[in-house]
Write a protein that binds this DNA or RNA. Structure first.
Lengths: 175, 175
DNA sequence: CTTTATATTCAGTCAGTACTGAAATATATT
DNA sequence: AATATATTTCAGTACTGACTGAATATAAAG
């Protein structure tokens, strides 16, 4: 992966762009894309050169990817440097990312909603509307979290099974 | 909604924060939160004052929310100004947002992946690995889009039904 | 223990997005 | 038509988060 092919470049650039749209640092996403395509683990130095970013930037970004659990350091015989490789199982990769984003963003939002409802002065007519709306929003988040917890336990393949059941439910409604 | 209560402020600030984490402009998210809690439609001027942002900023942000389809202008008798109100159905609101993000981000990613695979020189040993990875990623996106298409047709309540079916599948596996 | 290679930290800089306010446009009222 | 009110556009500014590179830390080799 010394020089990138046109296709590799296109994928890496697009992945970086997607990252920014979903609140993930462009360089972090690009590094992930590079490692995902790479047939071998790459040392930080090579990543920096390939993507034309500072070595220190790679260092920080790699750590970020490690906290997501989708990149890890491996060692190569006769080389003191850390080499980094991406997880290859796409489904598992997204499962990890979703799990973390739930923990970092969805769960705290549920907490804020609960706190808001708890802090709301009771029975005041002025806030009746606010309470109603907060309850609806809280209900939504509770449902989403419940759905997630249900899914969590399922083996990867079962998701497709659910997908087919969705089709049946639809047909039953329609017919 | 002339003056915000502590709870309303907390909700609006948190919602703004969540927005930024998911690639949505903070002000846009805050305005949405304000309108969502508001018992009545608000004119742009009042939104600007309440959130302490420029009137023009509200104008741009409102337009953004309108393109998402979750805020619309309504008219109040005896007032020439536009008043803005948020959709109240939370499920429908998220459905709309997801629909648009799929259209803006997921679908284009599928296209890029297809294009990458099409552009990949065939049978070259050097790119065998890249092809394999791109195919795995493309397969994932195809599956997600298929899942989405299945869900799309379902009435809101049916999602909960699916949720319960998830539980059964899980138990069947376990027991 | 010293030298060399590698990785991380962090203060300062840079870039891109968000925001403002003035000007332009649009719409209503007299 | 003239005036008043409301909204949008846009050039310039401000701000946040990303990035760099020098300094520091860590660890292997001699």
């Amino acid at each position: 992966m010394a020089e990138l092919t046109a296709v590799q470049t296109q994928y890496i650039l697009h992945w970086g762009e997607m990252g920014t749209r979903w609140g993930i640092n462009r360089t972090v996403a690009q590094i992930h894309a590079l490692l995902y395509l790479s047939p071998r683990a790459l040392p930080a130095e090579e990543i920096a050169e390939t993507l034309s970013v500072a070595r220190s930037n790679v260092s920080t970004s790699i750590r970020e990817l490690e906290t997501w659990g989708i990149v890890r350091a491996v060692h190569v015989l006769g080389d003191r440097r850390e080499h980094y490789e991406s997880m290859k199982d796409v489904w598992e990769m997204f499962r990890l990312v979703i799990e973390q984003r739930k923990r970092r963003e969805i769960d705290p939002t549920r907490e804020v909603l609960r706190r808001c409802l708890a802090d709301l002065p009771p029975k005041e007519p002025g806030v009746a509307c606010t309470r109603e709306r907060l309850e609806a929003m809280a209900g939504f988040f509770e449902a989403v979290i419940e759905l997630y917890d249900q899914m969590k336990g399922l083996p990867t393949g079962t998701v497709r099974k659910l997908l087919r059941m969705g089709t049946k439910v639809k047909r039953a409604k329609a017919g």
